[in-house]
Design a protein around this nucleic acid. Structure first.
Lengths: 161, 161
DNA sequence: CCTTTGTGTGCGTGATACAGTTACACAAAT
DNA sequence: ATTTGTGTAACTGTATCACGCACACAAAGG
């Protein structure tokens, strides 16, 4: 298991953005859905923005939006944007060069790991954010109607006090 | 990148065992080739032994041996023996259940991650320790002749003092 | 212009996983 | 009985995270 949960959080946030389409999402609202701190969301959104996947609007009424169509955002792009590139680690310190194996194992491992990462990458390429959003709707059992049902949509729509 | 280098170290050690065939390898010698501490090697060998990949002989002249043929040891088995099972992590704490996305995203992520791990697993299954050993010999440019050329093969074969 | 809203970011904290290291009990061979 | 080598426990240092606070800056709207 990787130490980082950024990939899962990024997909979660992007799912919200996909469902809300043109309505900007604030980091505070995304954080509530993910159950984390707004700063964590902002950092991940920053990585996604660097990759051209999302864009953000400052100020009142602002927030994050998708920068391209959900059909064009693959899981591979997201992974590359928020996680370390390698799935497998090599030795911490280089192996003993005077040993037959130590001297020759590294390029073999690199080639082998690269081959497996390519296979995983191909699998990641098969799914887009449009697919994820559709799967979420299927899991929910009913189509998304524009309301995430956050408890406090902003201030208090139901709390007159 | 995963935090652990156990997979790479395990493949390295098993390559030595494959090349040496029936000669037991001591954790001290494996540690020198990998450039680490013998206890680290013993821990990893312990995991590989639990998985039935290696066996060890105690006492003088002892060490580690393969428990099965190199052609029957796949990278997938090795990975499973020494690493955490999951390539991707879910949220640290569960998402907000009252949110449409938070309530439904987890099973979608699990299914998607499982699909990708299967693809990686299939790629890992394609390579055996026999393949790795052969690739190391190719990289070396000459076949292994039974001598790893550790500097101090035990005591001192070349150091008369 | 000034207040409100919201992002971007730097810094400190605590938790966790890992490699590395030492030490020691136990098993096997001679 | 001595030597050799494994298995394992305990401890350390280090890196990576998520987390959370705080504050500067940008944009919108009165």
């Amino acid at each position: 298991m990787p130490s980082s949960t950024r990939f899962a959080v990024a997909i979660h946030a992007l799912t919200v953005l996909t469902l809300l389409r043109d309505r900007p999402s604030r980091s505070e609202d995304l954080a509530r859905s993910v159950q984390t701190n707004p700063a964590v969301i902002r950092r991940i959104l920053g990585l996604l923005a660097d990759a051209g996947i999302v864009k953000t609007q400052l100020g009142q009424g602002g927030g994050a939006l998708l920068a391209k169509e959900p059909e064009e955002i693959t899981l591979r792009e997201i992974y590359r944007a928020v996680e370390e590139p390698h799935l497998f680690a090599l030795h911490r310190s280089p192996p003993y060069p005077k040993c037959y194996v130590g001297h020759n194992i590294t390029p073999v491992l690199e080639e082998e790991f690269s081959r497996i990462e390519q296979a995983a990458g191909a699998a990641l390429d098969k799914t887009t954010m449009a697919d994820i959003a559709a799967q979420v709707e299927t899991t929910a059992g009913f189509a998304f109607k524009g309301d995430l049902r956050f408890p406090q949509p902003r201030a208090a729509a139901r709390k007159p006090a």
